[in-house]
Amino acid sequence: MQTPAPARPRTKPASIRLEELMDAAETLFLSRGVEQTTISEIVAAADVAKGTFYTYFASKTDVLRALAERYTQRFVDALEQTMQEHPADDGEARLRAWIEASIALYARTHAVHDVVYANHHHLDRANRERNALLQQLQGILEVGVASGLWQLPSPRVTASLIYAGVHGATDDLIATPEQDAAAFSAAVVEDCLAMVGARRPSVRPKKRG
């Protein structure tokens, strides 16, 4: 006699169900807008009962908060994976990789970013998600300081300047997509390296006569 196949579980694990709810909400928020999307539409898209939604979230605001945390965690993880391709003590290579990956990731995912972080800074200037990225960048800069690659009075301040600069510059790239993205990214990298002292601008000789 053949052994019967094991019965499939009737319910999905909580972690999978949560991800499906968040995926459904994110898709609807992007296509319809947060205000226009209802909880009924979210649960219908996720194929769950409304009571399941309230097991995880109290409101759409809670969903947005969870989506923001997920967005940043994925962003941080992707940057970390990119940096792991370079030696831990190679501050310049890791800083370059962090900037290049940040530009590429933000340019590719800005639509989700704009949904989950709409007016975020006005609501919470402590901004835990932003701090996660700053700490990652600060760690790179501190490695460079420790190895003598560059001298920085305050790596935290420099990290904040680079983060804000890269973020703002990428907004310009997003707004004008006809730009050469590779050349744009290279220019941002070189400017940031110059900021920390890893790149010295060439001095042109004065003309005689």
Rank of each mutant, 00 (worst) to 15 (best):
E19R: 14
N127V: 08
D89L: 09
V143C: 01
A107E: 07
G148D: 00
L152S: 10
D90E: 08
S31E: 15
R108Q: 14
A182H: 07
T55I: 06
T82D: 13
L30K: 12
L67E: 08
P13C: 04
I140L: 14
D171L: 12
A198S: 14
G51M: 09
A164N: 14
L161V: 12
A49N: 14
L193F: 09
R74S: 13
N131R: 15
R208E: 00
Y54N: 01
L161I: 13
L18K: 15
Q73T: 13
T72R: 04
R65C: 10
V115F: 00
R8D: 10
F29K: 08
A25H: 00
S102I: 03
P155V: 08
S15M: 07
L28E: 00
I42Q: 02
S15N: 10
K12G: 04
P6K: 06
G148N: 01
A24D: 03
Q36E: 15
A49P: 00
V63I: 12
N119S: 12
R108G: 12
S202C: 05
T37S: 10
M83F: 04
D47E: 11
M22C: 14
A187D: 13
Y71G: 05
H120L: 05
V112I: 13
Q135A: 08
L95T: 04
D47V: 10
V48M: 04
R96F: 02
T158L: 06
L67H: 03
C192E: 05
S147F: 02
K12F: 05
L95D: 02
A187K: 01
S185K: 11
K60S: 00
E142A: 09
A183T: 07
N131S: 14
S15P: 01
S15L: 07
G148E: 00
E92G: 06
I103S: 01
Q151M: 07
T61L: 09
R10C: 02
G209V: 04
G91C: 13
E142P: 08
P87M: 13
R70N: 15
S202I: 11
L30V: 08
Q151R: 06
D191T: 14
A198T: 02
R17K: 13
A159R: 03
M195D: 02
E19H: 09
E69Q: 13
Q2S: 11
G144N: 01
R32M: 09
A88G: 00
P177E: 01
T27W: 02
R200L: 10
F184Q: 10
H122C: 10
G139Q: 11
S59A: 06
D171W: 10
I42E: 03
H110S: 10
L193M: 08
N131E: 15
A25N: 05
D62F: 04
D89F: 06
Q151Y: 03
V48D: 01
E80M: 12
D77A: 15
M1V: 10
P201G: 05
E20V: 04
E85C: 11
T38V: 05
N119R: 10
S147L: 07
F57Y: 09
C192R: 07
L149E: 12
G148K: 07
L79S: 03
C192D: 05
V203T: 14
G165F: 11
F75G: 05
L105N: 02
